[in-house]
Nucleic acid binder design. Structure first.
Lengths: 148, 148
DNA sequence: TATTGTTATACTCTATAACTATA
DNA sequence: TATAGTTATAGAGTATAACAATA
């Protein structure tokens, strides 16, 4: 039996537009949560992505974060000059940089997670733990589809 | 019984960041779906919001879309000069503009929905109709929380 | 005096193209 | 000849402040 077509009324906003706007809401909330720190949402994103993979080449980050190469360079310059990440040449291919978190970067990343957690809890108050798990699955499916 | 705290590992990306990135993915997909038209995602968003409410003041749109007043003016200028929307003074309060879709605007909006539908189906292939309903509920909850 | 909408301008973020160095 | 990363610069998108009209 084929999956029934999801109902769409003529009036309600398409899911895509809702996703777009929710993304903007979260970005704004993240910016607010980062107030007082010099970190901007993009910096935060880099730290979390590097933490997720342990270490990554800049090319890996460009792909995962959907950011332009030239933008990433600037973000890493900021993070490196503040001692949060380090760039090491890959001995196997000296064109590549291996990006990893410094000890301070790991601490900062952990602190960041707490701040983001508080922000999330305020934004997701109406959602149960099950809702959040489900939401994660959905978002990861979209993410995966876009990166395939 | 209190809602159990959602599990978060040290590695996986926070839901907020996933939401942020998915929003960017959708925005890019929307931009691609709009290729060939002069409409940008923001124009599209205006048309859909006006269609949703039937008519709205600019203040209403500013609130719903989380866009700056000065940005909205530019978007409406574009849409009005192309004959897709019209601005009428509110007789009850002559400071206000009532924004509504023209006939051409309604047609364009309907066509837009089809394009967005195709784009969505490509992006949400892995999701069942139930998943999509659930996702809508989650996103609306976040949207509502941010607009309260 | 406050609100709605407009304009001009500055700022931030992102994309493009040309470059170096390695492969 | 292609790829990883960098730099300088242009462009798109957004926010800020001052303004006119109306309440």
């Amino acid at each position: 039996m084929p999956t029934p077509i999801p109902e769409r009324t003529d009036r309600e906003l398409p899911l895509a537009v809702l996703l777009l706007e929710t993304g903007a809401i979260v970005q704004e909330a993240l910016r607010a949560a980062l107030a007082g720190s010099w970190l901007r949402p993009r910096h935060c994103q880099v730290l979390l992505h590097v933490a997720q993979t342990g270490s990554a080449t800049q090319h890996d980050l460009i792909d995962a974060m959907a950011v332009d190469a030239s933008v990433l360079v600037g973000l890493l310059n900021d993070l490196e000059s503040e001692g949060l990440v380090q760039r090491l040449r890959d001995p196997g291919d000296r064109r590549r940089h291996i990006v990893s978190l410094s000890e301070r970067g790991s601490e900062e990343q952990a602190a960041l997670r707490k701040r983001i957690g508080v922000m999330e809890d305020a934004l997701l108050t109406d959602l149960s733990a099950g809702d959040r798990r489900h939401a994660r699955r959905v978002l990861q499916a979209i993410w995966g589809r876009a990166h395939s």
